[in-house]
Design a protein around this nucleic acid. Structure first.
Lengths: 336, 336
DNA sequence: ATGAAAGCGCTAACAT
DNA sequence: ATGTTAGCGCTTTCAT
């Protein structure tokens, strides 16, 4: 590792440490020619300020943390989180922000890591994703004045969050099926301790009611966002004479379709399927999956921007943005 | 964020900064009772040492970086990297190591980030994955004495690495197909600027030769580890009268099977398929995919341990471990 | 516009 | 066994 410090650069450029620091931080009061000279020395030497020292001297560390409050196993079976991470790093890189990733593998781990995360002075702010409705992290973050933005909505009025309009998305999915003339529309939910799963279920219910349909609770099966859970849920649904199903995620839709295929039920003729996410699995489905597109990557990037914003300008009033979804019609929903 | 420092704890416990530091770092020369007292103050207050200060004072920051030198888009389409990250965090958490993640979205980004990564004094060591054979990162890391371990083998004698035995794995896959009586065995490669893709191809060639088969270059199609590339590769292969294909990853095998299905070619009757990885997609395939299992999560965890080891004990001699694979026979290879 | 000096929170000699 | 002190590399008053 190189031993280049401000001091070295200062000597080489024939100025003081402070001047170099000013140049590096783009302060105004440096003569252009001096600035030039210093910059060229920096260029030649490849000097980079030490983030630890910087941070210690009261500056930002330029590090943000991403906490994914979801058991890691489940987490990466679905491309959702990877995609989110992509969006986040995409925004981080040009801003020279380093991203620290916190994952948990058990509840105990989560409990033991939370305090460390909260008091860790290392990062300037946090993005949290995958929070369950009763997740203790968010309240702790608020209490400790940690700047953070949540992916997924929260009731607490002080929480900055970004979310997809899950209710409206689900509503659109189900309305689409109704318009296509489907009569008995089932729903396979995501894990209901997720706000997103609750909201999608709500959208399902709303759409049915808005069209004057009665809701048959027997047609709602509880899943947990895994392919396997949807596979099983669909098996249970098979006996109930349904002609359509709205599944809370694309990965789950794949599971549902697997069950359908095994039972020799044709899609979309006998049962229409609509998913949620519009991630790569949607295109892998056979036939290709009709689904609700949500702008995951954009949410990731926006989360970074929002975080920076609240770090700069404080978090009052709370930023709360809900992004629209889009119905992507492919083949599993059939034609009207 | 907390204003707790060593000094605060020292006062509260009625000792000096140094003593608290000693307690925190488990040094020996502290009387048990004093240690107890200090520990309880730490416990009560929830004090956590500042990693930046620690790092600056010449200690470890307890942060390691993970560089995935692969365009992020490609990267997360395949569950490989997510799984690797799981293994890594699983090892990090109990060791209280924080993981910083570096992804790139373009070549330019990569070029501009490498210097920062290398000179970033913030982390104690690095794990690198997805390095292409001519990736400039590894040489730069060596040159700058950054402690690191690579996932995937490297020729350079000083590189610490962990790898799957790709040659042997591919060899086993192809030998399996030969034993099953397949005559014209094709291969769809991964992206050949990856060592793993090269090695798997080598294994394919070796297996054929070991069994006295002649290699028909026309039966080798170049893919790039994406589902789509395999789909196209298989389309090209379709005209060549093959009865088996060894595909360099499970995700790609899915693409190949999609092409097969569209062409109404039955698997395994007309064409047998063997993949590589044994990741969730293997079970989603219809029928379930015969594949080569590699211990990805374990590699991730071992990488962390190895990194710690070389940080403690230096990296001479270089640690180089190649882990065995396992043939997992499911249905796409048929029965003998 | 620039330099000198203090100090961020910590560790590691060096004293005692 | 414990306290004192000198930095680590940087930013930031405060002088000049």
């Amino acid at each position: 590792m190189s031993r280049l410090t401000l001091e070295t650069i200062a000597e080489l450029a024939g100025v003081s440490r402070s001047t170099v620091s000013r140049v590096v931080n783009n302060h105004v009061s440096v003569r252009p020619e001096v600035r030039e000279r210093v910059l060229s020395v920096i260029e030649e030497t490849g000097y980079q300020p030490d983030p630890a020292a910087r941070r210690l001297a009261g500056q930002r560390a330029n590090i943000i943390g991403l906490v994914i409050a979801e058991p890691a196993q489940a987490l990466f079976a679905d491309p959702y989180f990877p995609r989110l991470i992509q969006g986040i790093t995409q925004a981080c890189n040009p801003l020279e922000l380093t991203l620290s990733l916190f994952l948990f593998h058990t509840k105990e781990e989560e409990a033991s890591l939370y305090p460390k995360i909260i008091r860790n002075n290392l990062f300037d702010g946090l993005i949290t994703a995958g929070n369950h409705v009763d997740d203790p992290l968010v309240p702790q973050l608020i209490e400790n004045d940690v700047p953070f933005v949540a992916i997924g909505r929260h009731e607490h009025p002080d929480v900055n969050f970004l979310d997809t309009d899950n209710v409206a998305g689900a509503h659109a999915a189900v309305t689409h099926l109704i318009r296509l003339g489907r009569q008995r529309i089932a729903h396979i939910t995501g894990h209901l301790n997720n706000r997103s799963a609750q909201d999608r279920q709500q959208g399902y219910l709303n759409a049915l009611r808005d069209r004057g349909r009665t809701v048959d609770p027997a047609l709602i099966e509880i899943g947990d966002y895994t392919e396997a859970s949807a596979y099983e849920a669909m098996h249970r649904l098979l006996t109930k004479g349904i002609d359509a199903v709205f599944v809370a995620s694309d990965s789950m839709a794949l599971g549902a379709m697997r069950a359908l295929r095994e039972a020799n039920v044709t899609v979309p003729d006998e049962v229409a399927v609509v998913g949620f996410d519009d991630l790569p699995p949607a295109l892998l489905a056979i036939p290709p999956l009709t689904t609700i597109r949500q702008p995951i990557r954009r949410i990731g990037a926006l989360a970074v921007e929002t975080l920076l914003d609240i770090m700069d300008n404080g978090s009052k009033p709370a930023r709360r943005v809900i992004l629209p979804t889009e119905l992507v019609v492919r083949e599993t929903s059939g034609v009207g």
